[in-house]
Each structure stands twice: as C-alpha cells, then as structure tokens.
Design a protein around this nucleic acid. Structure first.
Lengths: 149, 149
DNA sequence: CATTTTGGTTTCATAATGCAACCAAAATTC
DNA sequence: GAATTTTGGTTGCATTATGAAACCAAAATG
C-alpha cells in the first residue's frame, strides 16, 4: 500500500479527502465504480491494474467506507463492490473532473461520453455558488485557514 | 515519472483529466498551487516530497499546460510556478474534494479551513445542475457512452 | 564580499508495483 | 453430474518508482 505520509494541513478538508481516497489507483477504482463496474475482474480489465494491487486497494476502500461488498448470488463467498452512500458523495469530484476534461482535453467536435439528466437528456454541469445560491467565480473566493496551520 | 498506461476509455473526459494530471503528487501540487504556494521550496516543505520527484512533477505539469513558470525578480534564472488559466479550471475539483471532506471527514464541531466569498464571507459550495440551471441529484443522471467503448 | 538560501541534480537504498504462475471455489458447459 | 472455464484471489520475484542524503552553482542576504 502507498504508505503515504499524512498530508500537512490536516485541518484542510480537501487534504483529508485525498488521504481518505488514498492513492491514484483508488481514485480510478472509484471512477469505475461510478461507471457501474462492480466485479473484481471487470475492474481489473478496465484499469489494467495488477491483481494483487487491486485486491489491496479494494480492501482499503472498503475499510475506509467508500466501497462496500455485497454478496452476489446465494453463496456468500462471492462478492461485488459498490459505492457506499459516503462513496457516492464523491460524485461531484467526478463531475468536476469530467467537466475539466470536456473543456480542455477534447478537440472541438471530438466525440466523448456525456453525463445527462435521465428524464430530460439535458447535460449535467456543476457550478460554484455561494451558500445562498449565487454563482461565483473562483477569483472571488478566499480560503480562511484555521490558526497554527 | 509514473509511466502510467493510458486509461482505457479514452473517450471519457474524466479519464482524460486524470491522465492529464498524471499522478498523485501532481494532484497534491495542484492543490497547493490553489493554496497560493508558488515556490519550489514551499511545495517541498508543504508536501514532504523528495526534491527530485518534485522537479519531475513540476516539469510535467508545466509541459501539460497546468502550471507555468514565471520569472521572479529581474533575473530570469529563478522562477515560480503558478496555475495557468487551464490549471485554474481544476478549481471545481478542489472544491468538490473539500466539500466531501467537510461532510464526511470532520467530527461535528471540529475546526477546518473554509472557502468563502471574498466580499460577503459566505461559504462557497458546489451543486450539480442541469444545463438550464435546475439542481439535480446524482441518481437522476445517466452516462451516455460513445459507441465501441 | 562572506554566508545562507534556493532550486535543483546525482547516487544509492528501499519500497511499491507489475507480471506470471498457481490455486480453490463457483459457475458454466457438455 | 463430471469436466471445463471463469472468477477472485495469493505468492514470489523482477522491475520501477520513490525517498534520503550528499552535493552544487547561482542568487539573495547580511
């Protein structure tokens, strides 16, 4: 496992989130999980990750409450992995990554997958707003740190 | 450098974003850049990253257009690193990570840094909406893949 | 102008990862 | 229902990435 030093700035929520996810593979696994991948072998094929590493990362994500195992069929020996409610709260992270990719990493006209509202088919996007609902720009925000950084 | 195999599903914008960022350290560097860290030694202190690795990652992020070097002082030999406009578009990813952390990784009442609107001091949040501005839930979305996955 | 700091590079030890072989249990095929 | 294939791993070893420390030149500081 990536025995990553806990990030300095433990008071910082995004730092903690990154710690909770753990490492790069784990982030990719979570991404696949949002893509409805559930089985060991499907994660493995999708990511090209070594099986021993995948075993480890799935176990860690389950330990951290981001994934959970659900028994498949009647036998309890075989399981699938799915996002917990907490794991599903990483959805905005995935949408944000998607939006960045759409904006910067595709040629105009190049085809890509698209996230839409089920009912209407309208594309989904994500905005930064104040708590009272006004959209604002990154430049209008400021980070208030807690004392003794 | 992490010679990561290009992710399968190259048509997927979030996969491309993750490829563009590159690896875990790079993501942490970007996070620090949003925290107004600009100098080599400050990244190094903040992250506890080995200097040779930091050199490599900064160079890669610059190559990919996420960071840029700006000469500091009158000498052009010394540079600082700052987010490009493209790099700044990763802001929602950071806000999403922050929001997840605030929700799940702090005890009630536990102190953390806070992102607010400069002018009003109101907390910043991020919502998933349809293109026409209605807030929606993750469960109401569906991913439309391009053919031949 | 002497000293310290910055922004690196190089080398080497160590840790993480990838690969292939192997395996038992479950699922599938005949 | 026996044989075969697939699944979901584990183990051991080779390879690769990372971390630590030493070192260095240029810039900044005293």
């Amino acid at each position: 496992m990536v025995a990553r030093r806990r990030l300095k700035g433990d008071y910082c929520p995004s730092a903690r989130s990154l710690d909770a996810i753990g490492d790069w593979w784990s982030l990719l696994i979570v991404r696949d999980a949002f893509d409805d991948i559930r089985r060991f072998s499907d994660f493995q094929k999708s990511l090209g990750i070594a099986k021993n590493i995948l075993t480890d990362r799935l176990r860690t994500l389950v330990d951290r409450g981001i994934l959970e195992t659900v028994p498949v069929g009647e036998a309890k020996a075989r399981v699938e992995y799915q996002l917990t409610p907490m794991g599903r709260d990483l959805f905005p992270v995935m949408v944000a990554l998607r939006q960045f990719g759409e904006r910067h990493l595709f040629e105009p006209g190049e085809e890509h997958s698209l996230l839409v509202e089920k009912e209407t088919g309208l594309p989904v996007r994500l905005d930064i707003r104040t708590q009272d609902g006004r959209p604002i720009d990154a430049a209008e925000t400021v980070l208030i740190k807690v004392p003794e950084d």
